[in-house]
C-alpha cells in the first residue's frame, strides 16, 4: 500500500511535482499532431499547449506564466516551424492569464476556464497573425497581407471553440494536483 501523500517527504513531493509537470507537457506536445474523432474541426485540433499554459498561469505570477509560455512556445516551434515563433503568443497568454486576478472577479469552475481559454486562443492567434504581417519573408515565401487576416478570421473562432471545449481535460487533473500539493504544504 502506498503511503498517503501528506506523509511523503517534501523533497519527494517536489520531485513528483516536476514529474507531473514534465509528463503533462510531454503528453500535450505529443497530442498536438494527433487527430482523433471529435477532436477535429475544419482539419484543426485543439491547441493543447495553450490550454496547459492557461492552467499553469491561473494561480501563478506573471513572470512564471511568461516563462512557461516561452518554454512551451519553443517546443511548439520545434514541432512546426521555428518562424514566426509561438513563444511570443504563448508568453502573452501566460502573462495575461496570471494578471487576470481570477479569484477576485470570476468564479472558479470549468466554464470560466473555458472562457479564459477561448479569449486566450484569440489573443495567441492574433499575435501570430501580427507576426506574420510584420516580419514578412522574402518575396518567394511571403503571404499576402489580406490573406493572413482572412485566414485569421476563418480559423481563430473554430480554433478557440475547440480548445475551450477541451480545456477541462487538461485543467481539471492539473488543478486538482496543485491544489492538493498546496494543501499539504500548508498543513505541514
Amino acid at each position: 500500500m502506498l503511503k498517503p501523500l501528506s506523509q511523503w517527504s517534501p523533497l519527494t513531493l517536489n520531485m513528483l511535482n516536476w514529474v507531473v509537470i514534465v509528463g503533462s507537457v510531454a503528453l500535450c506536445a505529443l497530442t498536438l499532431p494527433l487527430r482523433l474523432p471529435g477532436m477535429e474541426l475544419n482539419g484543426m485540433g485543439p491547441n493543447w499547449l495553450l490550454i496547459w499554459v492557461v492552467a499553469w498561469s491561473l494561480k501563478r505570477t506573471a513572470f512564471q506564466g511568461a516563462l512557461a509560455g516561452i518554454v512551451l512556445g519553443l517546443i511548439q516551434d520545434g514541432m512546426t516551424a521555428p518562424y514566426p515563433s509561438h513563444a511570443v503568443g504563448l508568453a502573452c497568454v501566460g502573462i495575461l492569464t496570471a494578471r487576470l486576478q481570477k479569484q477576485r472577479y470570476i468564479e472558479e469552475d470549468f466554464i470560466s476556464v473555458a472562457l479564459i481559454v477561448f479569449g486566450m486562443v484569440v489573443v495567441a492567434e492574433s499575435v501570430t497573425a501580427v507576426q506574420f504581417s510584420l516580419f514578412k519573408g522574402t518575396d518567394s515565401t511571403s503571404i499576402p497581407l489580406s490573406e493572413i487576416w482572412v485566414y485569421h478570421q476563418q480559423t481563430a473562432l473554430s480554433s478557440a471553440i475547440l480548445s475551450s471545449l477541451w480545456a477541462p481535460v487538461v485543467y481539471y487533473p492539473l488543478n486538482r494536483w496543485w491544489e492538493r500539493l498546496q494543501w499539504i504544504e500548508q498543513s505541514s
Partner: peptide, 10 residues
C-alpha cells in the same frame, strides 16, 4: 500525424 498548428500545413 497532422500539423501541430493550423498556421502550418504539415
Amino acid at each position: 500525424g497532422r500539423s501541430a498548428d493550423h498556421w502550418w500545413q504539415q
